[in-house]
Design a binder for these strands. Structure first.
Lengths: 201, 201, 201, 201
DNA sequence: CATGAATGAGCTTTCATTCAT
DNA sequence: TATGAATGAAAGCTCATTCAT
C-alpha cells in the first residue's frame, strides 16, 4: 500500500482521472438507486470533491449519463454495424446473439440501469439512441416476411437476453452457467423463428 | 336546476368518487412520466383540487401507488392462489399463462408503469409485494428439478408476456393478433420446458 | 399596545396580506439594490418567511416584478388612454405632463427601479410593456411632422420628468418646489416644440 | 509561413494585446447584457482563453469595468478640467456641451452601459467616480444663484445629451442629424437658463 | 371534504475566485 | 502568459408534507 498518497487524509488530487472517477461512481449510484434519486451531492461526496467540480467535467447531470452511454455502448453499435454487413443467415443471427451476450455482460451496470429506469431514460437524450440501437438489433434478427409468431419469438430472444442478464442474477446457480442457459434459450428462439427444429434439450 | 351540477360552470362535485379520480389521474401520470417525475401538484392541478385535498384521501404519495397496486393486482393474487391449488400439469401452466395475459391486459397501465420504473418500485413498499407475486408465478411454472435451460425457458415465458404487452405496442399490427402471438410464444416456451414438442408454426 | 399580535415574537401569520407584503419588500429591495442583486432569500428573510412561501404566492422571481409593474403602472396606462381621446392640442399635452408627474411620483420606487435597471428590465417581460408605454406617451406628445429639433424637445420633456423625479432628489431644496420646477421645464419644452413662446422665467 | 501565426488554424497569439482584447469583449458584453448577467466564463469563451487567463490581467471582475471606465472617461475628466479654467460665460458652456457630445459619442458603449446599469454601477467603485464627474459638469454649467427652474434646465440639458445619445438611436433618422438636434436642444436649454432668448427654430 | 398558507429539505446549476504547474 | 482543476457560496426553484380553518 502507498505510493500515491491519500493514506494520510491528504487530498490526493490533480491526477487526470477525475472525469473517469465521476463516471464510475455515477454509474454505480445510478444503477443502484436510479437516476433521479441519485443527486450530484451524493456523487460528489463519495468522490470527496465538491459539486462544482462535477460541473467542471460535465456541463449537466444528463451529460454524465450520456457520456456513460456513449462510452459503454460503442461495442453494441459496432456489433450492429457488423451484423448489417453479414449475410442474412441463421448462423449470423446466432453469432450476433453470442456477441450481444458478451457486450451486455461487459457493460452490465449500464444495461441494468437502462432496464430499471426506462421511464427516466425515455426522456433523456439517450432514450432515442437506445431505441435506435434496439431497432438496429431487431432489423438484423427479424425477418419482416415471417409470420407474427416468429417475429415475436425474435423479439422475445432479444428480451430474454436483455432481462435475463439481470433478473437471473437473483436466482441461485453459477453465473456462467446461467449466462449460457440464457444464450441457449435465445438462440433456440431465433432458430425456431427461422423454421429450424429446436435443439433437443 | 338539477342533476349532478356542472351545468353552470360551477365546480362539479362528483360526490364521493374523489379518491377514485385521484387514483385514475395518478396512474395515468405515473405511467406516462414515471413516479418521481410526477408531482402531487401536477395530479392536483389536473383534478382541479388542491394538493392538500390529496392528503385527505391518501396519507402519502407512496400510499397512492400502493393503493393502485393493491387494487389492480388482486386478480393476479387470486390467479396465483388458483394456480397453487391446481394439479401441477402442463395444461395448468398453459391456462395460467392465458389468464395471466388477461390480467396484464386489464391493468395494463399499472404494469407498464412497473416495467418502466423498476428502480423506483424497488424501494417503494410495493417492491416486495411485486417480487413476491413474481416468485409465486415462477413457483407454479417452473419445475425446480428441470435442467437450467428449461427453467430459463419458463422465466422467459413470463418475461415475454410481461414485456411483450408493452413493447409490441410500438410495432404495427392488430393489437389482438399481437397479444395472441405473444401468448403463443410463451405457451410454446413452457411446453418445451416441459419436454414437449413445440407446436409446428 | 397591540391587538394583532407579533409584539412578543410570536409569528403573526395567516393574515391574507402576505402577497402584498412580499410585493412591498421586494420593491423596496429591488429599488435599493437592483433586481439581480436582490435574492429571494433576502426578501424571505426580511419577511420572516421561507423562500418556499414566496413561491406559493408567485411562480417565479420575475412574476414578482411583473406583478408590481402591472399593479403600479395602471394609472399610466389609463393616462395614455385618456391622452389618446383628447384633442391634440398644446393644452392636452400640458395636462398630460402634469398628470404624468403625479403618476410618477405615486409609484416612485418602481420608476426609480426601472430607470436604474434598464439593462435588466430590457430582458424581463416587462421590458416590452414599458417600451410600449413610452411609445404611447411619445405618440401623444410628439407631432410627427414637426422638425427634428422639436421632436427631440418633446422626448427631452418626457426624459426630464422621468429622470428628474429621481436625480433631483439628491440635490438640496424642497421636494415639492423641485417637482414643480421639473414640470415647468418639461411643459416649457413641449410648448416650444409647439412653436409657442416660452414662458418668461 | 510568417507574420503573426494563425495561418494554419493554430491558436493565433496576438502578442501583448490580450488585455486590450479582454476589455473590448467585456465592454461589448457588458453593454449588451449588463454587468452581472455577463459572466467571466462568457468573456473567456468569446476570446477563446480560460477564465484563469482573465485573472492574469485583472485581479477581479470589477477591475475590468474599472479599467474601462478609467481609460474611456479620461477625455471627460480633461473636459471638466478645461471647463473649470475657462471664464464662466455662456459661450464656455455651449462649447462644453459641444465637446461633451463628442466625448460621449466616442465612448458610446461605455456610456450606454452606465445609463442602463445605474443600480449596478452605483455600488461598484466606479459609482463614486461617475457621480463626481457628473458633479463636475453640473458645477460648470449651473449658476448656483439662478432660480430653481433654470437650474433644472441645466441639468435637463446634461440629461438630454446623456440619454439622448442612446434613446434616439431607436428612432428613425440620420444619426448625425439626431446628434445635432440633441445638441441644439441642450444648448438651447442652457441658453435659456442664462436668461437668453432661445434660437428661433 | 377540502382549501390556503406555509415549511424544511433538497435539487441542479452558476459564479467569481484561487493556485499549482 | 496562460491553463487545468477545483472550491465555496449562493442562486432560483420544486417537492412532499403539515395544519388550522
Amino acid at each position: 500500500m502507498g505510493g500515491m498518497g491519500g493514506t494520510d487524509g491528504t487530498k490526493q488530487r490533480r491526477r487526470g482521472n477525475t472525469r473517469q472517477r465521476i463516471q464510475d461512481v455515477a454509474l454505480e449510484l445510478f444503477a443502484e438507486q436510479g437516476y433521479e434519486k441519485t443527486s450530484l451531492r451524493e456523487i460528489a461526496e463519495r468522490l470527496d470533491v465538491t459539486k462544482a467540480a462535477l460541473y467542471y467535467h460535465f456541463k449537466t447531470k444528463e451529460e454524465i449519463i450520456v457520456s456513460l452511454f456513449e462510452d459503454l455502448t460503442k461495442p453494441i453499435e459496432e456489433l450492429i454495424a457488423w451484423g448489417r454487413e453479414q449475410p442474412n443467415t441463421l448462423e449470423t443471427k446466432r453469432e450476433l446473439l453470442r456477441r450481444y451476450g458478451v457486450a451486455l455482460t461487459e457493460a452490465e451496470p449500464l444495461f441494468r440501469f437502462m432496464q430499471e429506469n426506462q421511464a427516466t431514460v425515455r426522456d433523456l437524450s439517450i432514450g432515442m439512441m437506445f431505441k435506435n440501437r434496439m431497432k438496429g438489433m431487431r432489423e438484423i434478427v427479424i425477418d419482416p416476411d415471417a409470420d407474427l409468431v416468429d417475429q415475436v419469438r425474435c423479439i422475445s430472444a432479444l428480451f430474454t437476453m436483455h432481462a435475463g442478464m439481470f433478473v437471473f442474477q437473483e436466482l441461485a446457480g453459477d453465473p456462467e452457467d446461467k449466462r449460457e442457459a440464457v444464450l441457449e434459450v435465445a438462440i433456440d428462439l431465433i432458430t425456431q423463428a427461422h423454421g429450424g427444429a429446436r435443439k433437443s434439450s
